[in-house]
Design a protein around this nucleic acid. Structure first.
Length: 715
DNA sequence: CTTAGGG
DNA sequence: CCCTAAG
């Protein structure tokens, strides 16, 4: 029964995974560690980004001297000083050895909140002394925000290496379109004050060929010239430069754990970089979840996510993230998540049709009272109803603040499609990518005057977000929801900036939606939930709900601002809803990890031992716990081997053993092992066939088992 | 969640 | 290795 008729069964047809996923061992790394690393990287990247920006500026200004890779960066981080970094050197520092540096850096930033000072020196034609100096001092917050941009810079460095051709004509960051960078107003302002152009700092998608996700531009406060919101990206230590910049196909760059670089061509629009669920690790997750710890410490999620976060340059990379995130999924997530996810997509697609209904009833507007009644989520896409909610003359004791999120952009999305690709396919690709990002859930940060409003308990009025206030300076920042209080950096990762035009309805997200990801710093935040799900739901049906009182609701007057950005209705609408599309985003094969001979041996031995019933008084139990037990017995510490994997391996082993040696492929398995496999399998098969018959015949004598009986003793 | 089996 | 019915 186990034997396959098909000769090619097994891995023959297996496709080499384009994008390997991080090993489970890696994925399950301690949250804290991860987050720390992440933050470190981020900080470092920040510096690099700033420097890079400046450099770019310098270069452009000094157009004459291409100064390719000649720029020197001096980065002063308190005690840390990096000099003479140029071109590749910079990158290598950041990527390869950045750890130590980063960590220090991080400390500076997060721990002490010290200012970061980055000095960029651009050598002039004559001498080094003639450097053009630009200094930027930013606070920790900013640093975070710059992370994305940073990456960009790094990429540039790479360019300097000649790895990537430069495209001066495209302007500074544009060429690196895949990187999205956000700078807060604060940063921008500072830069401007220094006479540095801020525009360049806004990296991101400007160069993205189509910017499909941009709905509208209403940017008042953000650096973004277009005013569009940028989706944050996960910081990625991997240089973007590594991404191939071919214009003809969709390329995704990624690295596996071994730092191998992978590229996947998505021209087919089949992106399998993401998966919403991972069965793998469920068990672990569940275990974690079972403990109260999980509930109390959502940070775990952060950690996990953080890890992942570092690398999402490309979608392929997301996969890793997805996995990690999955593991962090709150209790409710595991079994439902996929469905929800799918559903969300569906809903999203329907948005256009239902957008009208979505934006509405000012009545439901944020009351801002402790009753926690959820306000209707007012979402107006620039396309459908930008006018709604303006100046809501809502009369009430408590003046209503109305806000509306116009649009958002998804940066760092490196997508290239063939010229012959259809617009629909392009949209589809973008949707998949964006959905993958959003799928991680979003946290929302509120930016006022370029500063992040951190105190969730303050009232809008107290925060300066009032009807009479200048709402043009109010912005929302979307960030991956994985980050929680645990990660110092997490809060600073601006992922997505949502510029908000003045006088728009301020809405409070319904229930779980924001509580989990909101900008609340409180560690008490509700357990992380899949925001995407909520997100969609919210958009779809504005349902008043109770907000988690334990967190934001503590203050009666608390009015956390939560904006749920609507997906680009237009783009989504165009994308056909298909199983394929849905699936493509959700799944990604794990990296293939052929079993080593030693592993095979362990497996065989475990099966034999367990097969003998040793330690198991009840055969019935044995019958239902085989693989799980095998896993525990022989691979308990092999996080990347699930019991399913073992089962599959056994399956293939049996097959392998039954075919001629010449037909076998891969690492040869010692014949003696195969013999044992056949032996055990034969017995096992017999055993199974007799399951119902209470009596089992002759015990199988395994070479090393000492021959125990398969009898049903104890039953 | 585990299994078993097809893909 | 993935995915999914079935327990």
């Amino acid at each position: 029964m186990v034997l396959k008729k098909r000769l090619d069964y097994g891995f023959n047809g297996y496709q080499v995974p384009v994008i390997p996923r991080a090993p489970r061992s890696l994925r399950r790394r301690g949250p804290y560690k991860k987050s720390v690393e992440d933050s470190q990287i981020c900080a470092f990247e920040l510096l690099a980004a700033v420097a890079g920006k400046l450099l770019q500026e310098s270069e452009s200004s000094a157009s004459s001297n291409a100064a390719e890779g000649k720029a020197q960066l001096d980065i002063h981080l308190d005690g840390i000083k990096k000099e003479q970094l140029e071109g590749k050197a910079v990158r290598s520092e950041c990527l390869d050895q950045g750890s130590s540096i980063e960590s220090e850096f991080v400390h500076d930033l997060s721990a002490q909140g010290q200012n970061l000072k980055t000095t960029l020196k651009v050598p002039q034609a004559e001498s080094d002394s003639a450097f053009e100096h630009a200094s930027i001092v930013t606070g920790p917050d900013i640093s975070k925000k710059v992370c994305n941009g940073l990456k960009l810079e790094i990429s540039d460095s790479k360019n300097a290496d000649g790895t990537v051709a430069r495209k001066p004509e495209e302007g500074f960051p544009a060429d690196r379109g895949s990187h999205g960078g956000n700078l807060e107003n604060g940063t921008a302002g500072q830069l401007e004050s220094l006479g540095l152009p801020t525009r360049n700092l806004t990296l991101g998608n400007t160069n993205s060929p189509k910017d499909p996700m941009r709905l509208s531009r209403n940017t008042h406060m953000l650096i973004n010239s277009e005013g569009s919101v940028q989706l944050p990206l996960y910081r990625d230590p991997v240089p973007k430069a590594s991404l191939p910049r071919h214009r003809n196909d969709v390329n995704l760059g990624t690295r596996d754990d071994d730092e191998n670089y992978f590229r996947c061509n998505l021209s087919s629009t089949k992106i399998r970089a993401f998966r919403s669920q991972s069965r793998i690790g469920y068990r672990r997750i569940r275990k974690m979840l079972t403990s109260r710890y999980w509930k109390v410490a959502p940070k775990l999620r952060d950690c996990e996510f953080s890890n992942t976060g570092r690398g999402v340059k490309s979608y392929c990379r997301n996969r890793k993230i997805m996995y990690k995130r999955e593991r962090c999924q709150p209790k409710e997530a595991p079994s439902k998540r996929r469905k929800l996810y799918d559903r969300s997509l569906t809903v999203a697609y329907d948005q256009e049709a239902s957008s009208e209904s979505i934006s509405n009833s000012p009545e439901k507007g944020l009351k801002g009272d402790k009753s926690q009644s959820a306000a209707s989520l007012h979402r107006a896409t620039g396309l459908t109803n930008s006018g709604i909610g303006h100046k809501a003359p809502f009369q009430s004791k408590d003046p209503q603040v109305k806000l509306s999120i116009k649009s958002f952009k998804v940066p760092e999305l490196y997508i290239e499609v063939p010229e012959t690709a259809t617009v629909g396919s392009l949209k589809r690709t973008v949707v998949e990518a964006v959905t993958a990002i959003l799928g991680g859930g979003l946290r929302v940060g509120v930016l006022l005057q370029g500063k992040k409003v951190r105190d969730d308990n303050r009232t809008l009025r107290q925060s300066g977000i009032s009807q009479s206030g200048d709402l043009d300076n109010l912005g929302f920042m979307l960030e991956p929801s994985f980050a929680q209080a645990s990660s110092p950096v997490s809060h600073k990762d601006p992922s997505l900036l949502l510029p908000c035009s003045g006088n728009q309805q301020l809405s409070r997200s319904p229930a779980g939606l924001v509580t989990s990801s909101g900008f609340s710093n409180s560690s008490l935040d509700a357990s992380p939930t899949n925001n995407l799900d909520h997100h969609v739901e919210v958009n779809h049906e504005i349902v008043p709900s109770h907000t988690d009182v334990s967190t934001e609701g503590r203050v009666s007057d608390s009015k956390a601002l939560v904006a749920i950005p609507a997906m680009n209705a237009e783009a989504l609408a165009v994308v056909p809803m298909s199983q394929k599309a849905k699936r493509s985003e959700l799944a990604q094969r794990r990296t293939r990890r052929p079993f080593s001979v030693s592993e095979v041996e362990a497996l065989v031995e475990a099966v034999e031992k367990l097969g003998t019933g040793r330690g198991l008084g009840v055969l019935i139990k044995f019958r239902f716990c085989r693989w799980r037990d095998v896993k525990m017995r022989a691979f308990d510490d092999a996080n990347h081997r699930t019991y399913v994997d073992l089962k599959d391996k056994w399956k293939t082993l049996v097959h392998t053993a039954s075919i001629a040696p010449q037909q076998r492929r891969g690492e040869p398995v010692p014949q003696d092992l195969l013999d044992r496999v056949l032996c055990a399998h034969a017995y096992w098969s017999q055993h199974q066939s007799k399951q119902h018959g209470k009596h089992l015949s002759e015990p199988l004598k395994f070479s090393d088992s000492g021959g125990e009986s398969w009898s049903l003793k104890g039953v």
